[in-house]
Design a binder for these strands. Sequence first.
DNA 1: ACAAAAGTGTTGAGCGTACACCCATGG
DNA 2: CCATGGGTGTACGCTCAACACTTTTGT
Lengths: 233, 233
Amino acid sequence: MVYTSEHPIFAVTVDVVALTIREDALCALMVRRGGEPFAGLWALPGGFVEPDEDLRAAALRELHEETAISAADVRLEQLASYGEPDRDPRGRTVSVAWLAVLPHAPEPRGGSDAASADWRPVDELLEAEHLAFDHREILSAGVERARARLEYTGLATEFVDAHFTVAELRRVYEVVWGRRLDPGNFHRKVTRTAGFVTRVGEFVNRGPGRPAELFRFGGAQVLYPPLSRWTFG
Amino acid sequence: MVYTSEHPIFAVTVDVVALTIREDALCALMVRRGGEPFAGLWALPGGFVEPDEDLRAAALRELHEETAISAADVRLEQLASYGEPDRDPRGRTVSVAWLAVLPHAPEPRGGSDAASADWRPVDELLEAEHLAFDHREILSAGVERARARLEYTGLATEFVDAHFTVAELRRVYEVVWGRRLDPGNFHRKVTRTAGFVTRVGEFVNRGPGRPAELFRFGGAQVLYPPLSRWTFG
DNA sequence: ACAAAAGTGTTGAGCGTACACCCATGG
DNA sequence: CCATGGGTGTACGCTCAACACTTTTGT
């Protein structure tokens, strides 16, 4: 099929920075490129937007093609758009990047158009890997956005199950921020910040130690005062 | 000229939310649309990206076409992209929105392709005006971004001259946030936050009252602790 | 019994708000 | 001399970082 236009031609794509926590490491969903350009390199899941498709819907579709995630419970936040004239050697493209946070890392599905997909630790990707296109910059922006969102929104609760313990929530902060937090002070701060968490009324035993109470997200749009990643601990 | 492509066709545009302060009101640069669609309504300055043009350069060019701003001293920050399938009745477009802050409101130039351009108070635009396309949403996002940036960056200094008094800076916060701030506490906070302002060593008299000392921006990337718009004052 | 984890108490330091107060000018 | 705005001092309250301590489990 060939399309025509009286305005300069752009192909519009979406790329998704999908983050999760696996084995105490912040991981991003990546696909290994099968064909040129950048064959064999890791790339963010993404692709072309359909002619009548909303941008957000396109991002959701691309994410769904790589993981069997139920579309309804993923919240996608727009990161930024990338449109350097030479970012794709095949032609002029503008990519709209999105951030998604998933609990429990659903296994990627193999049989899509991409050669293979997997969750990879972001530290390795950013330090040691050469990524396709400008995906290093996009991934970096996604991670930084997530780190900032933990400070003043309830984003951390999207990394864990609907019912979670305070310790599980603390683990999210520790992994994403890369620093240790004081368990006692964290507990007080989280439970006293209006709208952050709500008691469920149940307790669970995970290993030795006193049983932990279960909470769920309290619905707050903004946490105030925030949990500053620079001083909080 | 007719362009062809094997991928779905999108036209990519840029729209600029250019803010300044005039007569103690936060104002945005707007152009009145001459032709359809939305003829006669106010719209943000913007237009199509050229085939080999960087997105930021396109935003700068569109801003330059409406005001005689010297390209070098404007910092443009990307806001977000808007790509609803029906946002432009003429065809599928994706618009990348940018935020610019200008001191001293250079007079808009008349003779461009737009029928007329002018600085309009954002309060009026958001409360009472019907704007073209989805520009109300974009303008609203730009204003909100500016309000947030005042809290933890030096963005306020871009609203004033290179050399400014603390009172002039305070006026920026008061106008953008829409609330009064305590002059004494503001002075202390601004002068003691590392990297926010640097003494110039001169004093000026503007009307009655003790002469005010001149400062310049101190170069800080982030202000910590921030000036919270909810509690600071 | 012991280690480990959950959660609470306590204390001292620092910051922010409110507001009184002094300084330096124009009229 | 007074009004106006620039800038500093002071006191009270609040939050937070640090860390001791109690509670409740698994082994």
